[in-house]
Computed example of a mutant assay.
Amino acid sequence: MDDVLAAAWDCADGDEDDVTATRRRAGDDESNRASRGWWDRNADEYQDEHGAFLGDDRFVWGPEGLDEEEAGLLGPVAGLRGRRVLEIGAGAAQCSRWLAARGARPVALDLSHRQLQHALRLADGASPAASVPLVQAEAGLLPFADGSFDLACSAYGAVPFVADPVRVMREVRRVLRPGGRWVFSVTHPIRWAFPDEPGPEGLSVAASYFDRTPYVEQDAAGHAVYVEHHRTLGDRVRDVVSGGFRLVDLVEPEWPHWNTQEWGGWSPLRGQLIPGTAIFVCERD
């Protein structure tokens, strides 16, 4: 699962003072370059900080800890056997290994070479039955033939970081067979109106929910080093439909009592009051 506005920025030369946060336009190419570089630089820290929560072969949809074993958003677990599944923005491929262990035939795709190296590291301790092919590619240009997969999934991967989400939706639709299911999770859009803070200061509206201007961290030369794109809830629904999918369900996980950890702006305090994650369950007709 990819992080969103949660990990501290580590500048390439180690000087955080050279990086400033702003809101400005950022297109596909700039967003993709920034995401690839950010994750290559920060993958080690991300896996060190969140690896225990994510596990080596666990399928978690977001910081709330909603597990696919419990949620069944891709369908009944028993029905996963033999299904070809594409995980987009796979990170270290924890979700894909969970799928493989249940008899599915997943492929894990990520933009970041370093994240995929962590996937290889974790695979060394996995059983041969949980072996997962790894692919480095962009979500908006999937290197697969039409109708190659039965299911596609993304837990906080790719979708929040692209300037043109409809392009991603259409690519996912293209590689899915008719009737295939596409499930993805993102930061709940309402969170963009609040400061990204886990404590009480994160409970007061500080910005317009309707401001779609991307959040950009840039270096001293003005080059983006991290980009995240905001879409309202309605925008996300329209993106799904424009991409050729039917929205089957929209899941807003509640914060469970057992989860006491903070993850960036996600926390028990905020999670009990406002949603932090939105999961879109879509089907290709």
Rank of each mutant, 00 (worst) to 15 (best):
L80W: 11
L73V: 02
R114M: 12
S96E: 02
A108Y: 02
G79L: 11
Q136P: 02
A139C: 13
A145I: 03
D110P: 03
L142C: 10
A130P: 00
W98Y: 11
R84E: 13
Q94F: 04
G89P: 01
V132R: 05
S96K: 06
A93P: 04
L141K: 13
F149I: 06
A93C: 12
E138A: 14
V107F: 05
V135P: 09
V77R: 14
I88N: 07
S112W: 08
P106L: 03
R81T: 03
E138Q: 15
A101C: 07
A92G: 12
F149L: 01
A90D: 05
G103S: 07
H118Q: 12
A137E: 05
Q115S: 14
A129R: 07
R84Y: 07
A130L: 04
Q94P: 02
E138V: 07
W98F: 15
Q94A: 15
R121D: 15
H113S: 15
L122K: 15
L142Q: 01
Q117I: 04
Q136D: 04
P106G: 08
R81Q: 12
E87V: 13
L134S: 04
W98E: 02
V85I: 13
H113V: 10
P76E: 14
P143W: 08
L80P: 02
Q136R: 15
E87T: 00
P106S: 13
A126M: 14
A145Y: 03
R81P: 00
A123N: 00
A137G: 03
G75W: 06
S127C: 02
R97T: 01
D110L: 11
L111V: 13
R97Y: 01
R114V: 13
G82V: 03
A78G: 15
P106D: 06
D124W: 10
P128G: 05
P76V: 05
P128Q: 14
R105Q: 11
H113R: 15
F144Q: 07
A90W: 00
V135R: 13
R102C: 02
R102I: 01
R84F: 09
V107I: 11
A139W: 06
L122P: 00
G140C: 12
R97F: 09
A90R: 05
A126S: 14
G91L: 11
A129C: 07
I88W: 06
